[in-house]
């Protein structure tokens, strides 16, 4: 199963096995990764699953759609060029090793 590494703002990291097809947000919530909330359940309404994606993985991710683009505009922590919403990233084998950092706040 492909793995994802979640890095907390403190630097502490958490490696999680994520089934292909499962979103990063769902996986983080299931595994009790602090700092990923997903209040709206993954429908791109709430901006509480914001992450920063390690640069070398950015090109492998699906492009940002209109709804995600709008919601990224209202993240609580600063939006950076590697900001994404983890509910919009579905795991695939090609993303094995995906490393993301959790922002200091979500709301």
């Amino acid at each position: 199963m492909p793995r994802v590494v979640f890095i907390q703002p403190s630097g502490e990291s958490h490696t999680v096995d994520v089934a292909s097809g499962t979103s990063l947000m769902t996986a983080a919530v299931k595994h009790g990764v602090d700092g990923i909330i997903g209040e709206c359940g993954g429908v791109c309404m709430c901006a509480t699953c914001h992450i920063y994606v390690r640069e070398d993985f950015l090109d492998k991710l699906p492009p940002i759609q209109d709804t995600e683009e709008a919601v990224l505009d209202v993240t609580n922590a600063e939006r950076l060029q590697n900001s994404r919403l983890s509910c919009q990233i579905k795991m695939t084998e090609a993303l094995d090793g995906l490393t993301v950092t959790i922002p200091p706040s979500q709301r």
Partner: peptide, 10 residues
């Protein structure tokens, strides 16, 4: 129009 909604909340 998701952007309109987000701007509306603000």
């Amino acid at each position: 129009r998701p952007a309109d909604h987000i701007v509306a909340r603000r």
